[in-house]
Computed example of a mutant assay.
Amino acid sequence: MKDKNKILAGLVIFIAVITLPFWFNMGKAAPAPELELTAKAKAAKVCVMPTEYMKAEHMQLLDVWRHNVVRNAERAFVNPEGKLFDMSLSNTCLDCHSNKEKFCDRCHDYASVRPYCWDCHIDNPKGE
């Protein structure tokens, strides 16, 4: 019986210690950053895919684009609305979202991710 109480007390202490960071940080998460769109992006009003899709899936889309361009020499992307785009990070995406610090970096820093896009692509292809 004595051992049962010790084990139970040990489990309660263990669970309390393990969950302490969650209790300490509850409600303190930083809100997602607001993105600053360029005048061109605001004027276009439409991205290659819907905004919610791009927020969640843009890296998968860019991976498919990279594969199709490099492996299959395909350069054309047709979105669900039937609009044609060039599969190009530098000439399509960065044409509207040209300020990497105010657009890309804000979310990537918030999510603590370091994409490897910039290993090959320059972040300001038009020198703006």
Rank of each mutant, 00 (worst) to 15 (best):
M54W: 15
H108N: 07
P125K: 06
W23G: 00
N79H: 08
L20H: 12
L37A: 00
V12N: 05
P31V: 07
P31Q: 13
Y53D: 05
G10L: 12
E81R: 15
P80G: 03
G82L: 02
H108Q: 09
F22R: 04
K4N: 10
N91S: 07
M87R: 06
K100Q: 10
E101L: 06
N68C: 01
D109Q: 13
L11N: 12
W65E: 04
C47K: 11
A56N: 10
N72I: 11
I122W: 10
R71V: 10
V64T: 14
A76G: 07
L89V: 11
V17C: 10
L8E: 06
K83L: 10
E128G: 04
L62V: 11
A41V: 02
H108P: 05
F14A: 13
P50V: 09
R106N: 00
L61V: 11
Y110F: 02
E81H: 14
N25M: 12
K40F: 09
T19I: 14
K4M: 13
M49I: 01
E57P: 00
F22S: 03
L62H: 09
F77L: 07
I13H: 07
H97D: 02
N68E: 05
I122H: 10
D3F: 13
I18R: 08
P115R: 05
F24R: 12
E81A: 15
N99H: 11
N79L: 07
H58M: 09
K100Y: 14
P33A: 03
D3K: 15
P80W: 05
V113T: 14
D123W: 08
A30H: 00
C120A: 12
K2F: 15
E101S: 11
S90F: 01
G82H: 06
D119H: 12
R106S: 00
T38L: 05
K42T: 08
P50M: 04
A9W: 05
K45S: 06
L20F: 15
H121T: 01
P21M: 09
K40D: 00
M87T: 03
F85Q: 07
V64K: 15
N25C: 03
D86L: 15
C93L: 08
L94D: 01
M87H: 03
R71T: 10
